[in-house]
Simulated scan of single mutants.
Amino acid sequence: MTPVDQVHGLSPQVMYEQFWLKEAAQRRKMTGVKAAAGLVVGVALAYRFNLSAPVVGLLFGLLVGAGDMFWNWRTHDATAVWRGKRRGDVITGKLLRRRLRRRGYHILEGRAVPGKASIDHLVIGPGGIWVVDNEAWDPETEIARYGDRLFLGEKYGSKVAKALVEVSESLAEVLSRESGIPVTIEPLLAVHGGVIRRSVTAEGLTLLKPRLVVRWILNGPRAEFDESQVEVLARTAARVLRRMS
């Protein structure tokens, strides 16, 4: 059986995992080479500054080797959601709850918007309201803005952006009507995997890494709700949005 036959019909995720395992020996070899280079540099620095060459050299070698191993692990772990090993909504949800609840924000999770698609997280707090969804792309997909258009790799991201923008607008209309408090809602998309530099805003949608979502919310308030208004909006949202099973 040829290599082409072996991978024919396999999903990109399975192929990625197979290649990752196949290249494990090569990664270990390269880690050893880098650690050896670190050892040499450490010894050279030790002689330069009259330090203990064996100790400094060994320390540099261990640090370089450990750093390379950590980088390899982190690169692989970044694809966990795309590979189906972890859930993006769980990762983002933990970040939102841990850092926003103590600041007076309410987080509703797994809700269905009437007449629209479901949302992963709805954040309501003193600074405004945000819809936060999650998506995963393969490690080669570059997420960027060119002109006014959103691109996901070589494809337009208009469909992704339009869906979340429409959900946010529809939900803002419902909450404004049911609560009596005029609101606007900003859509955010937590990106798991792919290639993205911090954040990308295009076609009404902001895409960013999960760890940056909380910072974006806290640094960019869109409203000034008092405690009673936040409570009314949170209770209204909990009432009108059906919890997904």
Results as ranks from 00 to 15, higher is better:
K209G: 04
A66W: 13
A163D: 09
R74L: 14
H192N: 12
G110A: 08
A25T: 12
H8K: 14
R28S: 11
R48W: 12
Y146K: 10
E140L: 09
D120W: 02
L39D: 01
R111N: 04
W82E: 01
V232D: 01
R48I: 02
L233S: 10
R87T: 05
L207S: 00
V113T: 13
R242Y: 13
P182L: 05
V160G: 01
F151D: 02
S170T: 14
A172E: 02
K29R: 15
V214T: 10
V132Q: 06
A144L: 12
V41W: 03
A37T: 09
L212N: 11
V240R: 06
R145Y: 00
D226C: 07
V64Q: 11
F225V: 10
W137A: 05
Q229W: 04
L189I: 05
G147I: 01
R86N: 12
P187C: 02
Q229P: 02
K209N: 05
A53P: 14
V90S: 08
A234P: 00
R222S: 09
M69S: 13
R239E: 14
Y156L: 13
F60P: 00
I143P: 02
L95S: 09
R242T: 14
R97S: 13
V214P: 08
A161R: 02
V232H: 03
S228T: 14
R98C: 04
G42K: 06
L152A: 00
L164A: 01
R177E: 12
L207H: 03
T75M: 14
K85C: 06
Y16G: 00
V41K: 10
R215L: 05
E186Q: 13
A117T: 15
G110F: 03
W73H: 15
G153F: 01
L100Y: 03
G153K: 06
Y105D: 05
V183C: 09
F225H: 08
L39G: 09
A78R: 15
D5A: 13
A25V: 12
R48E: 11
Q13Y: 04
W71S: 15
F19G: 11
R48H: 08
A78P: 00
G9T: 07
I91A: 01
A78E: 15
R99V: 02
K155A: 11
